[in-house]
């Protein structure tokens, strides 16, 4: 399988990249690690006219973890996230596909692509992180909650580039990441990210739950969060909260997982992720 023809540039600066995108028009696409885009191009499900490769933009490969906030350049690879000691984000990144893919795939690429089956979108949602998006008219910060608009559609507009990913270190939170798939290298059937802050009295001071592959966009399990907040972190209360994990979801069914089964998995994995996060 071979991609259809396209033009290619690898600009030296972000401004040049934005310029190239603008000139390329609506069929121009950004190339980060390429591990979502190139397979689609090989299957000819995507046929861009121009690829703007960000590989020369060194600024987009920086990692900054000062002051309780983690700032990752969009071109930081999954492998660097997995080994960067960033808590939940690292735990999730370590499960992405396989080592070779983690060595090339980037956090910016996966978030801009916004596949609800991929790991990092729901993680960013749970972390209540944000991304920085640059366009010709300047820079804006978009909260994770506003980033994922629809299936494979994000707030990154035509002619814009996602340049940075930000999320808080969340001191005092425990985390759990539960991913269920058939094979280790597969996409998640369902995955659950959980963050739990325990109050001094042992109750749940704060909880955030991200759901992967439970809808056309990554989701928060708000009903489950509400059910646990302020409750003691016992096995019973966690199980009770987890029973709400799939409320209101319309997960995409496929050959290997029906809607019912995915909802069931969401409940099971939420219970497990919360349990780990509460330890």
């Amino acid at each position: 399988m071979i991609p259809a023809e396209f033009d290619y540039v690898a600009p030296q600066s972000l401004d040049e990249a934005l310029q190239a995108l603008a000139q390329g028009g609506e069929d121009a696409k950004i190339l980060a690690g390429g591990h979502s885009l190139i397979p689609l191009m090989k299957l000819r499900m995507s046929q861009p006219s121009l690829l703007v490769d960000l590989r020369q933009l060194q600024d987009l490969k920086s990692v900054n973890a000062d002051n309780g906030q983690i700032r990752l350049g969009a071109m930081v690879t999954h492998h660097r996230v997995a080994t960067g000691n960033f808590g939940l984000a690292s735990a999730a990144a370590a499960t992405i596909a396989d080592q070779q893919v983690r060595n090339m795939g980037t956090i910016g690429g996966t978030l801009a692509h916004g596949d609800p089956a991929s790991d990092m979108p729901a993680v960013l949602l749970a972390l209540e992180g944000s991304v920085v998006i640059r366009g010709s008219s300047g820079e804006r910060e978009v909260a994770a909650n506003d980033l994922f608009e629809d299936f494979l559609t994000t707030a990154v507009g035509e002619g814009e580039i996602l340049t940075e990913v930000r999320f808080p270190r969340l001191e005092g939170y425990g985390y759990g990441y539960e991913k269920f798939n058939r094979r280790q290298e597969d996409w998640a059937m369902v995955a659950v990210s959980a963050l739990v802050k325990k109050a001094a009295d042992g109750t749940c001071e704060d909880v955030r739950i991200g759901l992967t592959h439970m809808g056309s966009v990554p989701l928060r399990a708000t009903a489950a969060e509400q059910a646990l907040r302020g409750q003691p972190l016992t096995a019973e209360s966690i199980a009770s909260a987890a029973s709400h994990a799939a409320e209101g979801t319309e997960p995409p069914a496929d050959l290997n997982a029906s809607q019912d089964y995915k909802r069931h998995l969401a409940r099971v994995l939420t219970r497990r992720a919360l349990t780990t996060a509460s330890e």
Binding site: R183, Q184, E185, D186, W187, L255
Partner: peptide, 15 residues
């Protein structure tokens, strides 16, 4: 429906 190695799941060493 299972027309490539993403959908036709040959087990790997990890499985």
């Amino acid at each position: 429906v299972t027309g490539n190695f993403a959908d036709y799941a040959l087990p790997s060493a990890a499985d």
